[in-house]
Design a protein around this nucleic acid. Sequence first.
DNA 1: CGGTATCCTCTACGATACTG
DNA 2: CAGTATCGTAGAGGATACCG
Lengths: 118, 118
Amino acid sequence: MKSTVKTVSNGRKKVIDACHEPCAIEKGMRLIGGKWTGSIIYHLKDEPVRFNDLCRMLGGASKKMIDQRLKELEAKGMVKRTVIAQRPVAVTYQLTPFGQTALGFLEDMRKWSEQHDL
Amino acid sequence: MKSTVKTVSNGRKKVIDACHEPCAIEKGMRLIGGKWTGSIIYHLKDEPVRFNDLCRMLGGASKKMIDQRLKELEAKGMVKRTVIAQRPVAVTYQLTPFGQTALGFLEDMRKWSEQHDL
DNA sequence: CGGTATCCTCTACGATACTG
DNA sequence: CAGTATCGTAGAGGATACCG
């Protein structure tokens, strides 16, 4: 319910975010619908994966994006980051129990997407 | 497997889209993960809805966005547009049978999103 | 009513190079 | 190896006005 006011180029004010709580689907999509986010979660479904391995799995995604998405997911408690002290350092990412709760509909959606060849 | 080449600011060439077919989840997300897209499909789940009614249901979304999203969904065969000749004109949108196949995981995801209060 | 047209802003994303 | 820093661009999305 926050509401912010901003001045735009022509000098007038405009109101941002006035009382528009988006519906639940929209909120979910904003978390999971970012570019590569769904794929990242899906590729973590079985076991912890190291950063660069994830990069390879995702082919077209830049390190920057993957890093950014992993941080979002970590902040939301869906992914856990683990540092293994060795030389050189190893870092793995894995789904938390909460993160795993998203696998159900993600898997359904993957099947759906494959079947209908979008 | 298409591959395009583009000249960027510094004068060098770069290759775009070289052999990176995104995984199925990513493709699905690109279709239903757009802003408002999921919500639109969900609000059409029960019955045909008129354009302006949809706008009201979605609160914060502009006509432009809704129009754009409906066209995407129509192009993909998920939504059917029907014009009812009367004055003033009425236009309704409804899910096609194909569109309905997406309701399963969308509903799951809505529940998930609500439960965990993202 | 059901859209288009226009303009503008902002941020998401990509490429690249560098670091501890 | 696992990132960060920097820079650039395209296009997504919003505000507003207008139209048949």
